[in-house]
Simulated scan of single mutants.
Amino acid sequence: MVTIALERVGVALGHRAVVEDASAAFAPGTLTGIVGPNGAGKSTLARAMLALVPASGTVRIDGADAAAMPRADLARRIAYLPQGQVLHWPLTVERLVGLGRLPHLAPMSRLSGADTAAIERAMARTEVLGLRNRIATELSGGERARVLFARALAVEAPALIVDEPLASLDPGHQIDAMDLLRTEANAGALVIAVLHDLTMAARYCDRLLIVDGGRIVADGTPRAVLTPGLLRAVYGIDARIENGGDRPTITTLGRVRPGA
């Protein structure tokens, strides 16, 4: 099991503060969504958790300073799916998914039976077994997104951070992706997902962090934090929130216009 704790984390890119004074703790067995408008700092916050960008404050993984951890150790503990990846090499789908096993391999070693089984499981769960011999650079955007998701799942790490995992996916595969994240959390993994679809976030996540202007402005259950006032202040939208079921459903009504 993995825990992540942020203590007053800040990230500056150039002369601009992208993340400011972010503190939060994440526990195993939970699915946390990070939501907020474009440019709010969501992806940078996720990257800071993995020590992929220089940051002030402290990020602790299982109580240890993430910045001081060996990269292979960190990669075995937390699988990461970044947004908008570009594929440069004409690898087959099976070989691309197999890259998820690299943190477990010694230099110059070959895939073991356990590695091969993990790759098969990941491809089956994302429904890309039928693409295994296709060249990944020749896939559609949605197919490629599912293959990259499979690569992250192939790590079989106890924690998973995914950045916009629903991008390029049709509605059915969006549901499949969120079901997979929910299943990972239910099995005891720590799962963090950067999301834009508020209804999907509310439906699947145990907890939401609302990020705006580089700061965490709300942290709590979807029902607690997704309010008309917050959506108006953060997103500049009027929305109707229906709480009839276990999870709220958000219907966007329109933009808030200046002076309204």
Rank of each mutant, 00 (worst) to 15 (best):
T30W: 03
T30D: 08
T30C: 08
L31Y: 03
L31R: 00
L31M: 12
L31V: 02
L31P: 05
T32G: 00
T32D: 04
G33F: 04
G33T: 00
G33Y: 02
G33V: 00
I34C: 03
I34P: 00
I34R: 02
V35I: 15
V35H: 01
V35A: 07
G36M: 11
P37A: 08
P37L: 04
N38H: 06
G39H: 09
G39Y: 05
G39F: 06
G39Q: 08
G41M: 13
K42L: 08
K42V: 05
K42E: 11
K42T: 09
K42H: 09
S43Y: 07
S43F: 11
S43V: 06
T44P: 07
T44M: 04
T44G: 11
L45F: 12
L45G: 05
L45E: 09
L45P: 11
L45S: 05
L45M: 12
L45C: 10
R47Y: 07
A48M: 10
M49P: 06
M49S: 04
L50P: 10
L50Y: 04
A51N: 11
A51S: 15
A51D: 15
L52D: 13
L52M: 14
V53D: 13
V53E: 15
P54C: 12
P54M: 14
P54Q: 11
P54L: 13
P54S: 13
A55T: 05
S56Q: 14
S56H: 13
S56I: 01
S56P: 05
G57C: 06
G57F: 05
G57T: 09
T58E: 14
V59S: 03
V59G: 02
V59T: 01
V59K: 06
V59I: 14
V59M: 05
R60L: 15
R60V: 05
R60M: 07
I61S: 01
D62S: 12
G63M: 12
D65S: 14
D65N: 14
A68W: 07
